[in-house]
Write a protein that binds this DNA or RNA. Structure first.
Lengths: 228, 228
DNA sequence: TATAATTGTTAGGCTAATCTAACAAATTTA
DNA sequence: TAAATTTGTTAGATTAGCCTAACAATTATA
């Protein structure tokens, strides 16, 4: 049985590696920053998780999850996303409110609870942010995802999630008229200041690279090209 | 903000005093036993809770909740019982399975969550064990309750709850055909061995005093007499 | 009422998770 | 490549909550 804290470290490492498009391993400082603790604290825990064979860690090296660690991480992610779905669909929480409460609910220990919840929600495949929910076997469908910033000019893509889960950012996203499953077409990239010109629901808007980087999309055009 | 552990001590004290028919204050050893810790540990925490003005405690004396402490305890009890109701009514948990999971869920911190849950469940008044659920204002309807053992011979009463929440006892209760809101008529008390002869749903049974003591009932006949 | 039994308290330790401060290794940059 | 910067580690302290062992106060009983 893992502690609340150990679970949070595994989840962080999962998000920084498995669910990141850029990297497959994470440094001590990075993990510490992600969890809001000091590097010294993270260092202690990394050594502990290594002893428990949940992560690969070597002195002065980067860390990754072991198979066993990934299994636990997937369980936590599954719980987190099912609870978010419950809050959003059944309790009328808004999109930007679910995360904080799910952070607490994800640590409840009861296999029966989570499987019954899954059934109650009718086995959803994605949470309110568009992130895939691992199934009861721990399988996670990883579709071809990337940030809006990486999308080709002229392509149309579908928003499936966000990277930054802060309430502030989510409200900003809402204010631009963006939401999950919304189709976004990239019209152009402004040479002068790198702003992206996008069209959502027939309405044009300009967004910053920083903003675009935090919007996760899938592009079936790109996927089609990739398959050839 | 109270810690998980502080909340558990307040809840224990609430159950041992406010919700107990026998006593209005609890001793250190009693609280420790109720929580499954050693008296020395309970002693530490009682001093801490006194400093926080959540309980009345004096060296070598008994403890009770302050007004403030009772307020917190009622919030926790409210959460516990709403979650039990959710598990029972929405997730198909059985009567004897809800308690353990609710012990964890009751510590989730989110006023919005619990009020939305209350609404989702359509503002239930009692949980699956028949215990009253405090409303959002922290008001708890205390109806005249007592154990089956204290009931008058010849009276008919309604089962509204149990004292022992262990799965073993709850299954025993089930096996006798008893459940919440079931009407129980006391036919006689056996002089020889003090067994109670009861009738439930037209079926007769004999139960021990220990069993009867753990069944909570209300008796409208007694209440009527009391009012005169 | 003196003694025994019970109940409650204190002192001192342990563990998990955090911190600060000092230091060491690795990487980047001049 | 030498120096500067970044990144990671260690030692030692702190806090919450628990423990054991010894002791003190209270209550029950002979």
């Amino acid at each position: 049985m893992l502690s609340f804290t150990e679970e949070n470290y595994l989840k962080s490492l999962f998000q920084l590696t498995v669910e990141s498009n850029e990297k497959v391993e994470a440094g001590t400082n990075e993990i510490a920053a992600h969890l809001g603790v000091k590097p010294a604290s993270a260092n202690d825990m990394l050594k502990k998780l290594k002893d428990k064979k949940l992560i690969h860690y070597e002195k002065y090296g980067k860390s990754t999850l072991t198979k066993e660690g990934r299994k636990y991480a997937l369980e936590i992610v599954r719980k987190h996303r099912l609870w978010e779905t419950f809050l959003y669909e059944k309790l009328e929480f808004s999109w930007d409110e679910v995360h904080e409460v799910a952070e607490q609910l994800e640590h409840i220990q009861s296999k029966k609870l989570i499987d019954k919840l899954d059934k109650f929600l009718n086995y959803p495949e994605v949470d309110p942010h568009g992130d895939a929910i691992p199934n009861a076997k721990g399988e996670l469908e990883i579709s071809q995802r990337k940030s809006l910033l990486e999308e080709e000019i002229g392509h149309a893509c579908k928003m499936v999630g966000v990277k930054d889960n802060s309430a502030a950012f989510l409200q900003y996203v809402d204010s631009i008229g963006l939401s999950i499953n919304q189709i976004i077409r990239i019209k152009a990239r402004e040479e002068f200041d790198d702003l992206l010109e996008i069209e959502v629901n027939g309405k044009k808007n300009r967004v910053s690279p920083k903003f675009a980087e935090n919007i996760i999309i899938t592009c079936s055009e790109c996927n089609r090209l990739r398959k050839n």
